[in-house]
C-alpha cells in the first residue's frame, strides 16, 4: 500500500444559493481506498477541524443502488469504464493529482447540498409509465408466459440500469434519453409490457420533456459514461416506439387499436 497526496477541488453549495469550488488538500490517502472512502477520510478531517463536511450521496457502496453521483475530473463516476464512484479506487490516481469533484449538473437535477442532487425527476418519469399493470394478491406463475431467450436477455440488459443519472451528467444537453429508453425499452420488449406500450412510451417521453431534460444529439457520451454499459440502441428503439405510438395516437381510433390488440 502506498499513500497519495491529492489536491481536491470540491463544489460547495447550499440549495438555491450560488456555489463555488473549495480547494481541499487530501493528504496520505491509502491507494486501496475507494473514492467514497477517500471522501470519508476528508470529511473526518473537516469535522475534526470544525469545518462543514462535504455532503455526498451514497448507499450500497457496491455499484447497485446508483446513489453515488459525482462528476470526477469531468466524467460521471470518474475515469474508469463501467464503474460507479463507490467502485472507483484511488490507485487509478497518481501522487500530486488535482481532482475536480462536482455534482451532476442539470436543471432537472437541482443541487440539494454540495455534491448531492435531487434526482426525483427520474422517479416521476417512472411513475408516468415505467411499470406494468398486474393483478396483485396471488402471485402469477413465474413461467406462465413463454419469453424468447433473446428477448429475456435484451430486457435484462436494459433492466441493469440503476437510475444513477450518469447519462444525464455526461450529456452535453443534459438529456435523459438513455435512462428513459432503458426503462421504457425493458418493458416494451417483454410480452407483459405490450398492452400498455404506446401509453407508456408517450407518457414517459412527455414527462421527460416536462422535467426539463435536453434532447438527444446522438453523441453517445451517455453510453460511454454508463456504469452498467446500457447501449444507445435502446435510444434507437425509443425513437422508433415513440414515432409509432405518436402516429397511432394521432390516426388510430380506439376501435382500430382494439382490433390490433393494443
Amino acid at each position: 500500500m502506498s499513500l497519495l497526496n491529492l489536491h481536491l477541488k470540491v463544489w460547495r453549495q447550499h440549495r438555491g444559493q450560488p456555489g463555488h469550488f473549495q480547494d481541499i488538500e487530501a493528504r496520505e490517502i491509502p491507494d486501496h481506498a475507494s473514492f467514497l472512502e477517500m471522501m470519508d477520510i476528508v470529511n473526518e478531517r473537516l469535522i475534526t477541524s470544525g469545518q462543514d463536511p462535504v455532503a455526498f450521496d451514497h448507499d450500497c457502496r457496491e455499484g447497485i443502488c446508483g446513489m453515488c453521483s459525482m462528476q470526477i475530473n469531468g466524467v460521471p463516476h470518474g475515469p474508469e469504464r463501467a464503474t460507479t464512484t463507490c467502485q472507483l479506487h484511488m490507485r487509478h490516481f497518481r501522487e500530486g493529482d488535482t481532482i475536480w469533484i462536482e455534482p451532476f449538473r442539470a436543471k432537472a437535477f437541482p443541487v440539494v447540498k454540495d455534491l448531492m442532487v435531487d434526482r426525483g425527476a427520474f422517479d416521476r418519469i417512472q411513475q408516468a409509465g415505467g411499470f406494468i399493470t398486474v393483478r396483485t394478491g396471488s402471485a402469477p406463475d413465474a413461467n406462465a408466459i413463454p419469453i424468447g431467450k433473446e428477448v429475456a436477455d435484451a430486457a435484462m440488459d436494459a433492466a441493469a440500469c440503476i437510475g444513477c443519472g450518469a447519462c444525464v451528467a455526461a450529456c452535453k444537453n443534459a438529456s435523459a434519453m438513455l435512462f428513459v429508453s432503458a426503462k421504457a425499452g425493458q418493458l416494451n420488449s417483454l410480452p407483459q409490457g405490450q398492452p400498455e406500450k404506446d401509453r407508456r412510451t408517450l407518457a414517459m417521453v412527455r414527462q421527460m420533456d416536462k422535467e426539463g431534460f435536453g434532447h438527444c444529439t446522438n453523441h453517445y457520451e451517455c453510453e460511454a459514461a454508463c456504469p452498467k454499459e446500457i447501449s444507445v440502441r435502446w435510444i434507437t428503439k425509443l425513437n422508433r416506439d415513440y414515432a409509432a405510438a405518436g402516429l397511432r395516437e394521432a390516426f388510430v381510433g380506439r376501435q382500430e387499436a382494439a382490433e390490433g390488440g393494443d
Binding site: 462528476q71 469531468g74 462536482e102 436543471k107 444537453n173 443534459a174 438529456s175 435536453g214
Partner: peptide, 11 residues
C-alpha cells in the same frame, strides 16, 4: 438543451 444545463461544469 442549453436551458437543460444552466450551470456549466468546472471540468
Amino acid at each position: 438543451s442549453r436551458a437543460a444545463r444552466p450551470d456549466a461544469y468546472g471540468r
